[in-house]
Computed example of a mutant assay.
Amino acid sequence: MNNLVLASSSTEAEALEAAKTRLAEAGGTLGTLALNLLSAVAGQPGGELAGADQTKLVDFAEQELLPVAAAFAAALAGSANSAEKVLAAVAAGHSARLVDATKSLEVEEAPVKVLYAGARLQEAAAAFLDHATELIVPALAQNPALKLTGILPQRTVDAAAAAPAKGGCACGGHDEPGLSELDTRVIPHAIRHATIFGALEGLSAGKGILLVANHNPLPLLAQLEQRSAGKFTVSYVEDGPETWKLSMVRN
C-alpha cells in the first residue's frame, strides 16, 4: 500500500520512514533465511547443514523479529484510544505467536518437523511485518501521545556476517546456476530497495541472487556500494532493453 500517513511531527515522520525501511529489510532477510533452511533440509535431511540454517533463522528471529515485535506491543499497551487498544492486542498477539514459533523451530530435530516449524515461523513473521508496516507503525507516528521515535531496539545481529551456508531469496526461480531469482517488478516501489538489501544480507560468502528489473538499477547499485562497499560482485546477465538481470554474489 502507498497510503499517505501524516505523522504528528517531522521527527515522527523520519521515524516512520526508518521503521518501514527496517521492516522491509527484515522481510528480505527473512525470505533468504527461510529459503536457505528449505534448501538445506531438502538437500541434506538431518545433516549439519540443515542444523546450521535452522540456527541462523532462530537467531534472526530472536535477535531482530522478537525485540521489534515486543517494542511495538509495549508502545501501544498504555494507549487509552479504543482503536489503538485493538492494535495493542494485535501487536501482543503477533509477539506471542513469534515467540511460540521461534521456540518450536529451535527444538525440532526431524527434517519434516524442521520444515514445518520453519514455514510456521516464516508465516507468523510475514503476518507481523505486514501488520506492523500498514497498521502499527502509522498509528504510532500519527498519535502525538505515542512515540515511534526511539522505540525500536538497536540491531544486535548482522545477518550477512551470520549468514548460513546456503544462499537465496524467497522469490523463486533459477535463471543462473546457484542463484535464486529476485524479481523486483513485484515488490512495491516504496520498499523495493530495502527488501533487496535485506535479501542480500541473508547471503553467505559465494552465494548470490539473480536480480530482475524493468530498468537499469544504477541507483540501487550506487546505494549498495555506499552501504556495503566491496562486499558483493555484480555482473550483468541481461542488459535491457526491456529486462535487466544482474548476478549479485557475496564475496
Rank of each mutant, 00 (worst) to 15 (best):
S79N: 09
A42H: 12
L37K: 08
A89V: 04
N81M: 07
E48Y: 12
L66F: 02
Q63H: 12
E25G: 08
A26L: 12
F72A: 02
G27Y: 00
L57G: 00
R22A: 11
G51K: 13
V58L: 05
A70V: 09
L87S: 05
A71I: 03
L30G: 04
T29R: 08
A69Q: 01
V68E: 08
A34D: 05
T55V: 14
L66P: 04
T21G: 15
A83Y: 13
G43M: 05
N36T: 14
A75W: 03
A83T: 14
G43D: 06
A26N: 06
F60P: 00
E48C: 01
A26G: 10
S82L: 13
A34V: 10
T32N: 15
G51P: 00
A34W: 02
E62L: 07
G46H: 09
G78R: 14
A40S: 13
L38C: 13
V58F: 07
A88L: 09
A80P: 00
A83H: 15
A70Q: 14
A42W: 07
R22Y: 01
L30R: 01
D59E: 14
A88K: 10
S39H: 09
Q54T: 08
L66W: 10
N36M: 04
S79G: 05
A80I: 03
D53H: 15
T29G: 08
D59T: 07
T29Y: 02
L38E: 10
D53P: 03
R22T: 01
V58T: 08
L87Q: 05
A70G: 12
A42P: 10
L33G: 02
